[in-house]
């Protein structure tokens, strides 16, 4: 009923959210507790609170995104922040402007916080070293996607009660996936056991040094886990073929009703979207009751509100 006196911190240690790797368990728990409150807010008849009414946030997307951008924008608007959007396809980046120049130009218009997505790994970290602003990483190359990992973990926690001791398998293109790496860090910090599963060509050679299990057989992987996070096959990131054909991938790694029904237990299914229906996951699995895909989208707004709120509280 009253949780003001719960143990734990009131404020994030970090000034930016660059990756899950830098977060502590206490910080993740603070984000989750704050998201609980915002989830309540976004389910009210009036879904807006005035906390960030004097804060301006720029969403800078150097790479295409629909869901993440919409989710951030909605989170910002629900917090009453002023929002500006920028996408590289229609900007001076095409004319040769550098990343720092672009961002400094935006900041000189009195912007307080930056949400950035970039196709180069480490771009937000680079920016954080050179500019004085609060930065939220909305996905950098094949490195990290911290808000996605937090909302995935939050959705698992919501459905299973806790994450500690749970077994989670991440299926698909681990090599090119920033979602996979952030998920591994987040789940391990929260005390889960993590396994990755996919074609050997799409599993990074040294992934086991992170302390994750590797399994090439999808049936064994699903039988082991409590929750399966099925990743999208990112055809746009594959400059060379990593598997002989899409048909073969579907045959060996596609998650279908038959496989799920044959398991000894019920598992929950996550997917960061957008779904390639009939490729990595069939419609019957994606639309089943144990699939959290739409919960993930709802929780995404609450998690992003929590992160923006907590970082904004550190603005001077």
């Amino acid at each position: 009923m009253v949780n003001e006196y719960q143990s734990g911190m009131n404020q994030l240690i970090k000034n930016n959210l660059l990756g899950i790797k830098e977060l502590t368990l206490e910080e993740i728990n603070l984000i989750f507790q704050t998201a609980d409150n915002f989830k309540d807010v976004i389910n009210r008849p009036i879904k807006r609170v005035p906390s960030l009414r004097d804060v301006t946030i720029a969403n800078i997307f150097f790479e295409n995104s629909t869901r993440t951008k919409l989710s951030f924008e909605l989170a910002e608007k629900r917090l009453s922040a002023d929002v500006i959007n920028f996408s590289s396809s229609s900007s001076s980046v095409k004319k040769g402007e550098t990343l720092i120049d672009t961002v400094n130009n935006i900041l000189s218009m009195k912007v307080d916080m930056i949400v950035i997505r970039h196709s180069s790994s480490g771009a937000p970290h680079f920016l954080a070293k050179h500019i004085d602003s609060k930065i939220v990483n909305a996905g950098d190359g094949t490195h990290e996607h911290p808000t996605q990992a937090l909302l995935d973990a939050y959705s698992i926690r919501e459905r299973l009660g806790s994450i500690e001791g749970k077994k989670v398998v991440i299926v698909g293109d681990i090599l090119h996936s920033r979602v996979a790496l952030s998920n591994i860090f987040a789940l391990q910090k929260l005390g889960a056991e993590v396994m990755v599963c996919g074609p050997a060509t799409l599993i990074p050679k040294y992934i086991s040094t992170l302390g994750v299990k590797v399994e090439l057989d999808i049936k064994k992987a699903l039988n082991w886990c409590d929750a399966a996070n099925i990743l999208r096959i990112q055809l746009e990131r594959q400059k060379m073929p990593y598997f002989p054909s899409l048909r073969e991938y579907i045959l060996y790694y596609g998650v279908n009703e038959e496989i799920v029904k044959a398991l000894d237990k019920e598992i929950i299914i996550l997917h960061p979207g957008p779904i390639n229906r009939g490729i990595e996951i069939t419609s019957s699995v994606a639309d089943a009751d144990n699939a959290l895909i739409l919960d993930q989208v709802e929780n995404g707004v609450a998690i992003r509100m929590a992160i923006l709120y907590l970082l904004a509280s550190k603005l001077e």
Binding site: M1, V2, E4, N10, N37, D40, V41, V49, S51, S313
Partner: peptide, 25 residues
């Protein structure tokens, strides 16, 4: 019912230690 005012306060960012939200029900 229970009302938490944390997100509606006018001293957000003006407090040394931020307030932590509680449940609104």
């Amino acid at each position: 019912g229970y009302l938490d005012t944390t997100f509606h306060r006018d001293d957000f960012r003006r407090r040394v230690v931020p307030k932590k939200a509680s449940e609104t029900r």
